[in-house]
Design a binder for these strands. Structure first.
Length: 696
DNA sequence: AGCACGCCGACT
DNA sequence: GTCGGCGTGCTC
C-alpha cells in the first residue's frame, strides 16, 4: 500500500531522485530532482528543500522518491531546510489524498498545513531531534500492574460500552467510535482515560473542537492533568507561536495537541488517537480554499496511521451515522438520566391553528412567559433570523418581492427613523416598500416572518413591566455590549432575553425555566438539502442549554410544520427517528451520503464575461461526460443558468452530483489546470467546493 | 506565476 | 526584412 506515494528505493538501497512539490508557485505538478550524495542520509518525505528552478532558487517539499526518472537534465537539490522534516510521511500522504479528493493543488494544501515560517525562525527554533522520549510518568504507573485496564470493573458494569471502547484503544488499530449523547462529563471521562492510555503506550493524541469556546472548555479540563504535555492552538495564535508549538511537537516535548480544524495536520510521528468533539459542526469545513472538512480528514488520517478515532456528538451528522451502518463504525450512546427528562417539558405549537395569523407569539407561549415572570424565573426567546422581518408576501396571490439581480427575496428592514425599506441581503440593493402587490394589484401584501427587532417590540407591548434585552449581531454596537448584556442577564437583572444563535454562548441558563423557539420554520425552509438536519442540530443544541435541571423547565417550539420529522424528533428527543426519516429522504432524492455534491461557482465583475466562462465550464463538463474514464454525474443549474449579483460580482453556480467521486475527480483533474489558466484569473474566478456545507 | 517561443501583421 | 502583438506551453 503506497497510496500513490513513491517511496521506492532502487536495488542498491539508494534514493536517487526526489519528487518535489514547489511551495512558492501554484503549479499542480511534481518535479524531479537529483539527490546529492551528501544529502542522502538526511532527506525524507516531508523534508523542505531549496532547489534551482527557472534560474532562481526556490523551496519545495519532498513528497516521494524514485530510483529512475524519464526526465532529462535533472538538477540537484541544493540543501535541506529543516533538520527534521516539518511534516511526517503520513501527513504527506494525507495532503495528497486531500488534493485529489477536494480538487485543490498539492501545493495549496501543503502550504496550508505548514505554518508560515520566517527564515530567521528556522535558526532560532530548530528541531533538536530529541530521541523518542520515555512516555511521561503518570500517577497510575506506580499503582496498576495491569496496564490493559482503562475503565474499572465497576464502571464497565454500569456502562458496558466502555468495554468496547477499551478494546478498541487497546487494539491500537484503525477503528471509529461514534459516541452519541448529551452527557458531556461522561464523554470527558472517556477522553481523559483514552488519552492517558495512549500516552502510556508512548503515543500521541490530537483533540479537535469546532469553536474557540468549545476548545477552551476542553483545554481547561485537560490541562489539570496534562498541562506540561500539551499544546493548544487557539484562535488568536500567530504564525510565530504556531511554529514554536510545531517545533515542540516535532521535538516530542509535548504529546497532546488541541485545536480547531487546522490542527488535524500537526506532525506527531507516533500518533495513537484522534478525538473529534461535536463532529457534526459545519465549522469543521474550511470555507476558503483548501475547502476540506477536518472531520473527513481526521477519518482519513486515522485510517492512514492505522489508529482509533473517536467522533462524538449529541446529534451526529447524517454522514457519520450512516457510516455506523455502512462502514462498521462502533456506536455508543451516552445520555443523561431520566430525572432530567421528567422535569423537562417540550411543547410544539401548531401556528396554523392560531386564530390571528399575524401574531408572532402564540397564546400558549404568552401564558408560559407570564407564568415564568410570576415565578421570578428568566425566559430566553430564540430566533435565528436577524433584522426586522424576513420578506414580504402577498396573501392574495403569493407573490414575494425579489431582487431583480439576485432572484432572492428582499428583506424587510426598518431604518433609524423607523422607515420601512427592502434590502437584498445578497447584493445590498435597496428598494421602496410598496403597499400594492406588483403582480395582482391587491393590497394584501405585508411582511411575513420576523426578526429579533420586531419580536422585541411585540414582547415589549405584551409585557410592559418586564426587563427585556436583545442579543444579536445588530444590537451590538460597542465591543463591550455583548459582555454587558450577558452580565446583566446572568445576574438576574433581565427577565426576557431575545436572541439568535449568540445566546448559545455565555448565557447562564440556571435560572431560566422557559425557552421559546419562535419559529422553527425559518431554517427549515432554506433551499438546502441539509436544512432539516441543521434545524434538528441547532434546536437540539438550544434545548441542551438546559444542562442542570433541578426544577421544572419548558421548551416551547412554534412552527407551521408540526408534522415535519425534524420537529417530531425534537419533541421526542429521538435521534433515531430523525435519522431514519432523513436517510430515507436522502436516498429517495439521491443526496449525500448516497452521492457527493460538488459546488462550482464562477465570480466576476462583468456579466458577459462570467456568462461566457460559465458556458465554457459547462462544455468542459459535457466533454468529461463523454470520457470513458470519468464517472456518471448529474449537472444541476446549467440548463436555466441564473446569474446572481453578489456584492460587486456577478455569480453563476452549478452543482455536480456524482456517486463515484474518486473516478470523477481523476478525469476532471486531467485538463483542469489548463482550463483554469486559460479561462480564469483574478478577474474571473472559479471555485470548486467538494462536499459543501452550504448550498448557496 | 512568469517567461520563451512562434506565428502573424505592420512598418522604417 | 524586422519589430512587437499575444496565444500557447513549459518549468525538473
Amino acid at each position: 500500500m503506497n497510496n500513490g506515494i513513491n517511496e521506492f528505493i532502487n536495488m542498491h538501497g539508494e534514493k536517487k531522485y526526489a519528487e518535489i512539490v514547489i511551495l512558492e508557485y501554484n503549479f499542480d505538478k511534481i518535479f524531479h530532482y537529483c539527490i546529492p550524495q551528501d544529502l542522502k542520509d538526511r532527506i525524507s518525505l516531508g523534508s523542505r528543500v531549496t532547489i534551482p528552478f527557472r534560474g532562481k532558487v526556490t523551496t519545495g517539499c519532498v513528497v516521494g522518491f524514485l530510483a529512475e526518472s524519464d526526465v532529462k537534465n535533472l538538477k540537484d537539490i541544493r540543501q535541506i531546510t529543516d533538520r527534521k522534516p516539518i511534516l511526517t510521511p503520513q501527513v504527506i500522504r494525507l495532503t495528497k489524498w486531500i488534493s485529489n479528493y477536494y480538487l485543490c493543488s498539492w501545493e495549496k494544501i501543503l502550504n496550508y498545513a505548514i505554518p508560515k515560517t520566517r527564515r530567521a525562525w528556522l535558526n532560532k527554533f530548530d528541531i533538536t531531534d530529541i530521541s523518542p522520549q520515555k512516555p511521561p510518568r503518570l500517577p497510575e504507573d506506580d499503582k496498576s500492574s495491569d496496564n490493559e485496564i482503562i475503565f474499572s470493573a465497576e464502571e464497565v458494569k454500569e456502562k458496558t460500552l466502555l468495554k468496547d471502547i477499551e478494546n478498541i484503544i487497546n487494539n491500537k488499530k484503525f477503528k471509529t467510535v461514534l459516541i452519541r449523547g448529551n452527557d458531556f462529563s461522561s464523554r470527558m471521562k472517556i477522553y481523559l482515560r483514552c488519552i492517558r492510555k495512549t500516552l502510556k503506550e508512548g503515543r500521541q493524541a490530537i483533540v479537535l473542537a469546532p469553536t474557540e469556546s468549545h476548545l477552551s472548555e476542553l483545554a481547561g479540563l485537560l490541562e489539570k492533568e496534562f498541562k506540561d504535555n500539551m499544546v493548544v492552538f487557539d484562535e488568536k495564535i500567530d504564525q510565530k507561536a504556531k511554529y514554536q508549538k510545531w517545533i515542540k511537537i516535532r521535538n516530542s516535548q509535548v504529546n497532546i495537541a488541541l485545536g480547531m480544524r487546522s490542527s488535524i495536520f500537526v506532525p506527531f510521528d507516533r500518533l495513537g488517537l484522534i478525538i473529534v468533539e461535536r463532529e457534526h459542526s459545519s465549522l469543521y469545513k474550511e470555507e476558503r480554499s483548501p475547502r476540506y472538512n477536518a472531520r473527513e480528514v481526521a477519518l482519513k488520517r486515522a485510517e492512514l496511521e492505522n489508529i482509533p478515532l473517536i467522533l462524538s456528538s449529541e446529534t451526529p451528522s447524517v454522514e457519520s451515522y450512516w457510516n455506523v451502518h455502512e462502514n462498521n463504525f462502533l456506536e455508543e450512546e451516552l445520555n443523561t438520566g431520566e430525572e432530567r427528562e421528567n422535569l423537562l417539558k417540550k411543547t410544539i405549537i401548531d401556528m396554523t391553528q392560531e386564530k390571528s395569523k399575524k401574531k408572532i407569539i402564540s397564546y400558549e407561549l404568552q401564558q408560559a412567559i407570564s407564568r415564568s415572570l410570576k415565578n421570578k424565573r428568566q425566559v430566553v426567546l430564540f430566533l435565528n433570523k436577524r433584522g426586522f422581518s424576513s420578506f414580504m408576501i402577498c396573501s392574495q396571490c403569493g407573490h414575494i418581492p425579489k431582487c431583480p439581480d439576485c432572484n432572492t427575496s428582499l428583506s424587510y428592514h426598518l431604518d433609524i427613523q423607523k422607515r420601512a425599506q427592502l434590502i437584498c441581503h445578497n447584493c445590498g440593493k435597496r428598494a421602496k416598500v410598496t403597499d400594492v402587490c406588483a403582480k395582482c394589484g391587491s393590497k394584501e401584501i405585508r411582511p411575513l416572518g420576523m426578526g429579533t427587532q420586531k419580536l422585541e417590540s411585540e414582547i415589549k407591548k405584551m409585557f410592559t413591566r418586564a426587563e427585556i434585552r436583545r442579543l444579536d449581531r445588530d444590537s451590538l454596537i460597542k465591543d463591550d455590549d455583548y459582555r454587558q448584556i450577558l452580565e446583566e442577564f446572568n445576574q438576574g437583572n433581565t427577565d426576557i432575553l431575545i436572541g439568535t444563535q449568540m445566546v448559545l454562548k455565555g448565557v447562564d441558563f440556571n435560572n431560566v425555566d422557559l425557552i421559546g423557539i419562535i419559529s422553527a420554520d425559518t431554517l427549515l425552509n432554506l433551499p438546502d438539502y441539509r436544512s432539516g438536519e441543521k434545524t434538528f442540530q441547532l434546536l437540539s443544541e438550544v434545548i441542551s442549554s438546559f444542562r442542570e435541571i433541578s426544577f421544572p423547565k419548558e421548551v416551547i417550539i412554534q412552527t407551521f410544520n408540526p408534522e415535519d420529522h425534524c420537529i417530531v424528533a425534537l419533541r421526542e428527543q429521538d435521534y433515531n427517528y430523525f435519522y431514519q426519516k432523513e436517510i430515507e429522504l436522502r436516498k429517495e432524492l439521491d443526496y449525500p451520503p448516497f452521492t457527493h455534491i460538488i459546488k462550482i461557482v464562477i465570480l466576476g465583475e462583468e456579466k458577459e464575461a462570467v456568462k461566457q466562462r460559465a458556458e465554457y465550464l459547462i462544455s468542459y463538463l459535457e466533454f468529461l461526460r463523454k470520457d470513458k474514464e470519468s464517472a456518471e454525474f448529474k449537472l444541476l443549474g446549467a440548463v436555466d443558468m441564473v446569474l446572481w449579483k453578489s456584492r460587486n460580482d456577478f455569480k453563476v453556480q452549478f452543482l455536480v452530483k456524482v456517486k463515484d467521486l474518486e473516478k470523477f475527480n481523476q478525469a476532471f483533474k486531467k485538463k483542469y489546470d489548463k482550463m483554469l489558466s486559460k479561462h480564469f484569473d483574478q478577474k474571473n474566478r472559479l471555485t470548486i467546493d467538494v462536499d459543501p456545507v452550504r448550498m448557496i
